[in-house]
Design a protein around this nucleic acid. Sequence first.
DNA 1: TGCTAAATGAAATGAAAATTTCATTCAAGG
DNA 2: CCTTGAATGAAATTTTCATTTCATTTAGCA
Lengths: 295, 295
Amino acid sequence: MKNKVAISPETDPGVRSRIVEHAASLSPQQRKIADYCVAHMQEIPFLSVPELAERTGASEATVVRFCQRIGYTGYSDLKMALVDLIREEMNASSPASAGFESAAQDKDFLAAMARLEQQNIERTLDSIDRQTFSHVAASLFKADHIFTFGLGISAFLADYAAYLFTEYGMRSTCLATRYTSPREQLVALRPSDLVFAFSFPPYSRQTLEVLEEVGRKGVPTAVITDKPTAPAAALAKETLVVSSHGMSFNNATSAANVLLNALVLEIASRHQGETTDAISRINQILREQTYVVET
Amino acid sequence: MKNKVAISPETDPGVRSRIVEHAASLSPQQRKIADYCVAHMQEIPFLSVPELAERTGASEATVVRFCQRIGYTGYSDLKMALVDLIREEMNASSPASAGFESAAQDKDFLAAMARLEQQNIERTLDSIDRQTFSHVAASLFKADHIFTFGLGISAFLADYAAYLFTEYGMRSTCLATRYTSPREQLVALRPSDLVFAFSFPPYSRQTLEVLEEVGRKGVPTAVITDKPTAPAAALAKETLVVSSHGMSFNNATSAANVLLNALVLEIASRHQGETTDAISRINQILREQTYVVET
DNA sequence: TGCTAAATGAAATGAAAATTTCATTCAAGG
DNA sequence: CCTTGAATGAAATTTTCATTTCATTTAGCA
């Protein structure tokens, strides 16, 4: 667990209560500072002594004396307390931060892996550019045919993506390397198509070659990768970056999965008619084939 | 839901897009910094140059140079941009936007999907019986050959599982239905083998038949499914239940993924020699084949 | 009025951060 | 093999910040 250095809930009454507690013993200038603090608590972590002094009309010296009066060693100390608070706030909404460090130390690999993937998902959610996201969704829907591609671990994602797109009524094929090279399969590629690649470490050279060639032909490309600086990012028209921090060499793919699922949902919501039609037809087919076991 | 005080990409005019934009022109060290920034955007406002340098393994000078390369005058400038963002966020969500969030979530499929999968992972973590988990891990390692099987969406999991097991030095094959039925492929099955099935709605009848037949032969079976009452659970010797609540018909598979990754980690930790040998051999092969693009 | 003690800000000091300089390393191209 | 230019980190420099010192002011009080 994290070190709450010197500010454990028991010993730290909190900035606000300290101010209230010592309100009586504050000098006029210090009071102005106190008032500003309670009114703009969230601002403090980003303010320096000179700034706060300027905003309250007091001198820098008085700001520091105020901090000491209410029980901190100085302004840095008070600020740190508030920084910790704000950090807690930020992490509070995700279950991810709960106890990753401790889990990783234990032998509970399930817990460690779970926390890790929750964090990956959280980071991805924070860092995906929504505009790019929407744009990719639109491009996917617009495309005549979506060719998905990936090698190594990324192959599973490519496969899954093609499956998903098809289920949602789009035409999609995964460029498999079973019999022919992907580039052979792309000879008939048209500008109205789209190539959707997945590139995770260890980055395959072939994926980059495909992206490069397709791009040269003027066919739209999109890539899901793990870093904005990944080699594939430079070659694709659109890049979606997902967090993929792994414990070992096997990459964490949950975030990419989430992203894919979200993409098709986005598409489905924008084009209700076409997609729900496709989905219900598929469901019906499954039933007709007695594929499904009823529950 | 808690107030999320974080940088949201929609309102980010600068930092992220500047990084993506200039990604190509960044030097190796600068890339490391760029990657850290996008992955830990919320941290930056609280980090100093020395701290960031230490975390990324680059020098302080390089940190500053990175900021300048992507268009800021220096680190202070970049930090200010992020501070402004965080302040905006806080002001936007602080007042009284409790109801606003749910409305916003309706349209943010990425966020919705992310929360859903995080919950699935959380629930799985809570509900998996650790003893069964360990036992399955042991059985997998003990098996001469692991046959994985799944249909529909479960096929991807089966495929991935076979891949993972192989990477970790075990023998494993996914029973594909491309040319022959799975039952044909199982004629040579021996009691020292193991069949690992995946069964998610819509439950396929074929999966149940395979499990039943294999079980009759006295060959160990394990299944990952979504409910303890799922039809496959009754037929397999070992059952691992993962939470898989989905928004639409496409099942949420993140939890199953996490479980698989955790399983191989567990196995790897118990049998260090064999697995790490296999992994390092694989890594070497990848390098020899110039498959990998170095970064 | 004159004395005292707290309060205050200007400026000095000390500390840490940010930026620049410079010598070294490294890689690409002649 | 040598040259050249980019990249890099160590260290110097500059800037900014936090804290302390000190002289001045102010209010309370005999």
